[in-house]
Design a protein around this nucleic acid. Structure first.
Lengths: 231, 231
DNA sequence: TTTCGTCAGTAACATATGTTACATAATCGA
DNA sequence: TCGATTATGTAACATATGTTACTGACGAAA
């Protein structure tokens, strides 16, 4: 393990930090990286957290696992990024979700005390940590509201309107879906056939038209009505 | 508005702060308190946050409001306490939930920059803020998991087993429910008749026996099986 | 006591989503 | 190109919960 593999300068948390400090941290972390093959579990739910987990490279996602095989994907990460910032300082810090590698991942841990030192020394780090935890809290609260009060149809509508649609020459709007139906279903927290059925119905009613990874927006106002209905 | 009404020394966030600093903050905040009558809205969802909201006295609760009349109570606060710590430093800080006064409330706001200063000066404040945000994130994640993967019956079982039961002379365990059925239903995020029905069924099956605000645990192992089934 | 309003239980029905199974289409490797 | 695997659409049925409406119990006010 040589130090060049550790490059934390691209992580938003350390964006405004003096280079000297970055170097010091990097040197300390050198040789403590861990790797994880694609598809494997980086951390299960409940794993105690000793420090801040940095995803140096590779992609991963966080998922909530139910009693049965059902899962819900909560968030996706592309390295380099800091993971689970918010939980690190909770009374008994542990991963609230399972963390799965989507591609080969390299990770490293910054000890908690070290991070606190940095936050006190550098206002930018302090603000970055707090901004990050705030962002994730907002995300979870929104997610909770959507899961509780929005129908699957509404969640689909929200998703589509968040994917910036492109307009072709004929003036019709369409989006390109970057996920399989199973992945979409996991993101929405429903079973795959339920998603297919609902997309089918929305097609029957002339709201959208789905063909593979392309979804065309037929009735934009109907779509917007669905979105406003749950915000 | 005289300063004695502002007493922030009981707020966990400032627990370990030197008295001199406490006094300084208190003096600054004097005269800027706001009051809110019972049942009224302290802050709607989406209200921009300028600073940290301190609930000096009174009780309040946070609720997520759906498109229809449905609501879900997310958290309850008893003053003095700090509210929505986590959101304050998000990119565009705003209340992710609605905040409702349960009894007459007095609140005051600590400007964000002031709080950042304190966090940098006093490690205890820094740790308290981070611990608080972490705690709430964990809470939301757990809540999300329960709402997504646990049936109403399981959520009832979790609730009951979290209410420390008392054992009477005959050895039977019972709990005292401090909420009306409507309040319980709101906490579970379901309609009141659905809750009644499920409690009734659990009674039929000999798991619990509910009589008004008293719930007796008949079959503790069945209850525990429900709880383990969703963790 | 009577009356009125609130709370809680219940039943009938409506709806959303899960579950299972199957057929077809798409993709990929040999 | 072929066969195998995987992804997707679809249908029939099961289940959980929402919705509405009614009833009785209880407590406060007249």
């Amino acid at each position: 393990m040589s130090s060049p593999e550790v490059d934390i300068s691209k992580i938003a948390l350390f964006r405004d930090m003096p280079e000297a400090d970055l170097d010091r941290i990097t040197r300390r972390l050198a040789g403590t990286t861990r790797t994880c093959a694609a598809g494997h579990v980086i951390a299960e739910r409940g794993t105690p957290m000793e420090g801040l987990l940095l995803l140096l490279n590779g992609n991963a996602h966080a998922e909530i696992v139910g009693g049965n095989a059902q899962t819900m994907v909560v968030e996706s990460f592309r390295g380099p990024d800091a993971i689970a910032t918010a939980m690190l300082f909770a009374p008994q810090p542990h991963f609230p979700v399972a963390l799965i590698a989507d591609s080969p991942c390299t990770t490293v841990e910054v000890p908690r005390e070290r991070l606190l030192d940095l936050a006190q020394q550098h206002r930018s780090v302090l603000e970055a940590i707090l901004a990050d935890t705030g962002r994730r809290t907002a995300f979870l609260a929104t997610r909770l509201r959507l899961m509780q009060f929005a129908s699957l149809r509404q969640r689909i509508a929200v998703y589509i309107s968040e994917c910036a649609p492109r307009t072709d020459r004929n003036g019709s709007e369409y989006i390109h879906v970057k996920h399989s139906r199973q992945e979409l279903a996991d993101m929405f927290g429903v079973a795959r056939p339920s998603l297919s059925r609902e997309i089918g119905r929305m097609g029957d009613e002339g709201i959208i038209w789905a063909d593979g990874s392309t979804i065309q927006i037929i009735d934009r106002s109907a779509l917007e009505a669905l979105v406003t209905g749950c915000e």
